[in-house]
Design a protein around this nucleic acid. Structure first.
Lengths: 170, 170
DNA sequence: TATTGTTATACTCTATAACTATA
DNA sequence: TATAGTTATAGAGTATAACAATA
């Protein structure tokens, strides 16, 4: 009868179990994975975030801009700005101002940057293969596909949540 | 003939695509999820990590120790130590020294801590239900189960990798 | 002598706002 | 006036080591 039923059991909170928490499950899975990759990055004196930037640039078919880099690495623009400046100092990255809009600049790996990524990559692959061997290659591919779908689908909720008025006022 | 075949194509690095990177996929999935939970935590003036601690304690059937808390929240002991001290200051957590071993102490939520979690939880559930509705309840449950299996399996690689000598010297 | 937990330290990232230059 | 990107700043977490107390 009351909408405050904490009187029933103060210790029982209506909430899914900790194990059923998706953010926790994703975090733990990431930690489980990273425990094998971190020593590798440490050996090469690079942080996780710098590696994400290098990796993204190595994978990009063409030079990309800072804002795009922030998106795909899941870093904030100020972080990207700092990381890029440092990688540039280290000679790993080259910046080119976009002539058509001089506010923008595109980023790409230098030969040294590519060499560095190329040097780390095989070690990374070894780790990857261990994980694939344990979990199953097909199963891992399926998990990856689900994660991609998940991101695609949940990112679309955004529009519904942020502008629900469109539905109620046709 | 050389083991340095960068001469073939300096730009092509033998490595899975950025999209096929499991750490990235897990990170993005987590970010996709957290974008909906973060405003909620911010509204209640609490950090992600503090919430993990509160959530873990709320879910624990009995008081737990700092080391255990660090494990299940995926935080380092120094972080847990600091967070717990602060939550204790705020009256959310109660510490009890373990009589049998006075180095240890167990932690549990106070009534106020439980009230706080109980206050945030329903909002969290709403977000969760939106995600379930979009991605599919069954599908989300399956994804969670896969993630749990993944953690369990990959955590076991540890033993193989850290002590491979056991296999080669029976 | 090993273990639990805290404290110390240096570094880095996060998050937000303010700012510069350009469009 | 809006946008791309940088800089400034405050706050917090990460990681490692050193340390205290206890076992």
């Amino acid at each position: 009868m009351t909408d405050d039923d904490t009187s029933i059991a103060d210790t029982s909170i209506a909430m899914r179990s900790f194990d059923a928490s998706l953010p926790m499950a994703l975090l733990r899975a990431r930690e489980a994975t990273m425990q094998y990759f971190r020593p590798l990055l440490a050996d090469h004196g690079i942080t996780e975030q710098k590696w994400r930037v290098l990796r993204a640039l190595a994978a990009a078919p063409e030079p990309i801009e800072v804002s795009r880099l922030a998106e795909i690495t899941a870093l904030l623009p100020p972080s990207v700005s700092r990381i890029v400046a440092r990688l540039n100092d280290d000679g790993m990255i080259e910046r080119k101002v976009v002539p058509a809009d001089t506010r923008r600049s595109t980023l790409e790996l230098t030969a040294e940057g590519r060499r560095f990524v190329g040097h780390v990559a095989p070690h990374s692959e070894v780790v990857y293969e261990q994980i694939e061997a344990s979990f199953g290659k097909t199963r891992l591919a399926a998990l990856l596909a689900e994660l991609h779908d998940f991101v695609e689908i949940t990112d679309k909720i955004d529009a519904d949540v942020e502008s629900p008025a469109e539905e109620s006022s046709p």
